[in-house]
């Protein structure tokens, strides 16, 4: 099957953190989650940008919360894409263990030609899965092939975050393991990752600098690397250094940088920095891979 007989569209959610130019170039549809300040509901990245969000976070007394899009939101998106000519939809999402988004998308897609993928990832670790699947579709992949690419990319990527504090993650209820060790008295900088779709602390460091070094050390354990990425929540100046370091780590790899979206910002807090890598395809990877 080729694109002549089937038109495949790729859908994801706003936790993917993909830069707008990538989203646009690959024709990806991003469904926003919701950030709520009290009763005020704001669509992630639509009604509120990352810059506006972190500025507001500093002022607000109420802690913001997040909500998954309702099944109706997904249904409307899928129906619109079908009306525009899509014959099949690949809907690739944030870990079902972290968010109700995937469940909502499944409900919204009932009876429609939508295939859902739980990447067990978040942020650009989800983003790279979406991006690679969309590239595969662009290069003529079938739905099954694109789904396999998304899942294989999810298997090969690893994302780390260092946070100024675990407080935001704790309040958001996203700490699933090791939540008893905050180290808040010593202002510990935690390093966390996603393991099997759940937030897992991997290290506790005394300074942010040491935490970033620890992340880069862990990233360097993955070789060879095809994609590297870095994100910041509210400290853009930190990216230049990370870009250089990641280039040094894997000069041949593609590099993506982005800003953490508000809905993730609610959980990681200001000052968070994230780095990840995608290992090059291996013998377990599917035969069809985007060039």
């Amino acid at each position: 099957m080729t694109n002549q007989t089937s038109t495949i569209r790729v859908v994801t959610d706003s936790t993917c953190d993909l830069p707008p130019d990538v989203v646009e170039a690959l024709g990806i549809t991003v469904v926003p989650l919701t950030v709520m300040f009290g009763e005020e509901e704001l669509r992630d990245g639509v009604d509120i940008t990352a810059e506006q969000f972190f500025r507001r976070l500093g002022r607000e007394k109420v802690m913001p919360t997040t909500a998954a899009p309702g099944p109706g939101v997904f249904r409307a998106v899928y129906e619109r894409l079908i009306a525009e000519g899509a014959t099949q939809i690949l809907s690739v999402h944030v870990s079902g263990k972290l968010s109700a988004t995937l469940e909502s998308a499944r409900q919204g897609g009932e009876g429609l030609p939508v295939t859902h993928v739980d990447t067990l990832q978040v942020s650009l670790a989800l983003g790279v899965c979406v991006m690679e699947a969309a590239r595969a579709v662009q290069q003529g992949a079938t739905l099954d092939q694109a789904e396999a690419v998304a899942l294989d990319t999810a298997r090969r990527t690893r994302i780390f975050f260092t946070l100024e504090t675990l407080e935001y993650l704790r309040r958001g209820g996203r700490m699933s393991r090791g939540q008893e060790f905050f180290g808040s008295l010593l202002q510990i900088k935690p390093v966390i990752t996603l393991e099997d779709g759940e937030v897992t602390p991997v290290a506790r460091m005394r300074t942010k600098q040491k935490a970033v070094e620890e992340i880069l050390r862990r990233c360097s354990e993955s070789r060879p690397v095809s994609i590297t990425y870095a994100l910041h929540a509210s400290t853009p100046d930190e990216l230049a250094h990370l870009r250089d370091r990641l280039h040094g780590l894997a000069p041949e790899s593609r590099y993506i940088e982005a800003r953490i979206t508000p809905v993730i910002g609610v959980h990681v807090g200001p000052g968070a920095v994230s780095v990840g890598v995608v290992r090059a395809p291996d013998e377990q990877s599917p035969s069809f891979l985007p060039a």
Binding site: F181, F182, G183, L185, L186, I188
Partner: peptide, 11 residues
Amino acid sequence: RGIAAAFRDLG
């Protein structure tokens, strides 16, 4: 007490 609390805080 503060040092004890810091140790508890770290597990």
